[in-house]
Amino acid sequence: MAVEIKDQLYLKAVDELDAFCKRLDEKIDKEQQQLKACKKKTEFETKLAHEMKLNKDLTDRLAELSRRGNELDRVCASFESCLTIADSDKTRLDNAKEAYQLAKELTGIRLDFSAPSHIAKGYIKSEYHKQLHPFEIDMSTADSNALWNLLNTVVGSERIHNDENRPIN
Results as ranks from 00 to 15, higher is better:
residue 101 Q to N: 12
residue 159 R to T: 08
residue 55 N to D: 14
residue 132 L to K: 15
residue 157 S to C: 05
residue 163 D to A: 11
residue 98 E to C: 04
residue 89 D to L: 06
residue 23 R to M: 00
residue 104 K to E: 11
residue 115 A to M: 03
residue 39 K to E: 11
residue 150 L to R: 03
residue 51 E to I: 08
residue 87 D to E: 11
residue 18 D to E: 15
residue 156 G to L: 05
residue 100 Y to V: 00
residue 10 Y to K: 13
residue 140 S to M: 02
residue 19 A to H: 06
residue 125 K to G: 00
residue 154 V to T: 00
residue 83 L to S: 08
residue 141 T to C: 00
residue 55 N to L: 13
residue 87 D to L: 07
residue 22 K to D: 11
residue 76 C to W: 08
residue 71 E to M: 07
residue 27 K to I: 06
residue 15 D to Q: 15
residue 121 K to H: 01
residue 110 R to D: 09
residue 75 V to Y: 04
residue 64 E to L: 02
residue 140 S to P: 03
residue 128 Y to A: 07
residue 84 T to K: 10
residue 168 I to E: 11
residue 136 E to A: 03
residue 61 R to S: 12
residue 124 I to C: 02
residue 83 L to F: 11
residue 10 Y to H: 13
residue 149 N to D: 15
residue 27 K to S: 12
residue 8 Q to C: 05
residue 159 R to V: 09
residue 97 K to M: 07
residue 8 Q to M: 10
residue 66 S to C: 02
residue 67 R to E: 11
residue 52 M to N: 14
residue 20 F to G: 09
residue 168 I to K: 15
residue 123 Y to A: 00
residue 67 R to V: 06
residue 42 T to F: 05
residue 48 L to T: 10
residue 168 I to D: 10
residue 125 K to P: 01
residue 100 Y to H: 10
residue 88 S to W: 04
residue 38 C to F: 14
residue 143 D to F: 03
residue 133 H to C: 01
residue 46 T to C: 01
residue 101 Q to L: 11
residue 145 N to V: 04
residue 32 Q to E: 13
residue 30 K to A: 10
residue 89 D to S: 08
residue 3 V to W: 13
residue 73 D to A: 07
residue 160 I to E: 09
residue 167 P to I: 08
residue 112 D to G: 00
residue 108 G to N: 06
residue 124 I to A: 02
residue 70 N to A: 12
residue 165 N to Q: 13
